[in-house]
Design a protein around this nucleic acid. Structure first.
Lengths: 104, 104
DNA sequence: CTAACATATAAACGCTTATTTATGGATTTA
DNA sequence: TAAATCCATAAATAAGCGTTTATATGTTAG
């Protein structure tokens, strides 16, 4: 039963994990999960420089965790829950575990 | 509602993600999820050098994904599902999402 | 006790990537 | 159209980490 999952599929997963490896990235995601925001808003909330934010947002977007939409001169970023959910689902399959919410 | 989660808690999560960032690590975990093994067995299954395996196993162990037990001159490694499950649970809380297995 | 086996550790190297600083591009406003 | 605003990109630097090679530690067998 070894090797049932392709390297391509696993690389997609590891890319997701790589992208979530810093506290700042998680804080950005959490902020966007609360409400969609432009870069300026995040800058104020998270107290980090604008280029640094742009870079992290690009990484999160390329990994599918957020989407970006130009609106006037702003760019609004939105959290995308599906990306993480799919990641977890692949891991459940790979490891043969389940994350059932405690049975009621 | 921003910042409900401590940096300490988030660092624990990011450490978990950091640890799962390579395909080889995932393959090691998947192999151990199938059956507990010593280093020699994994070496044969995964076709990587012994020091490299030892290093990755140490990382996985320090992050809580596996446990190690000395048995004679071997060391048996076991997959530890709880670590990943807790990781996911923290993320659900942080992002306000749920990964419910489809409701029946 | 010595040799063989199983695993861990150390040193050295290279690569990736986060961060800072500076600048460019796009859009609106006056 | 000129200035201001918002965001992205480039260059440079530094730090972390995976990989290899070599050696050390621990355990059993003869």
């Amino acid at each position: 039963m070894t090797g049932v999952m392709s390297d391509k599929e696993l690389r997609r997963v590891t890319r997701g994990f790589q992208t979530l490896h810093s506290v700042l990235r998680l804080r950005i995601l959490a902020a966007l999960a609360e409400r969609e925001s432009n870069v300026r808003d995040l800058e104020d909330v998270l107290r980090v420089s604008q280029p640094l934010l742009s870079w992290h947002l690009t990484q999160l977007r390329q990994a599918g965790f957020v989407t970006a939409e130009r609106m006037g001169r702003e760019v609004r970023y939105r959290f995308q829950p599906a990306a993480f959910q799919e990641l977890v689902h692949t891991m459940e399959t790979l490891l043969g575990i389940s994350l059932s919410n405690e049975e009621k």
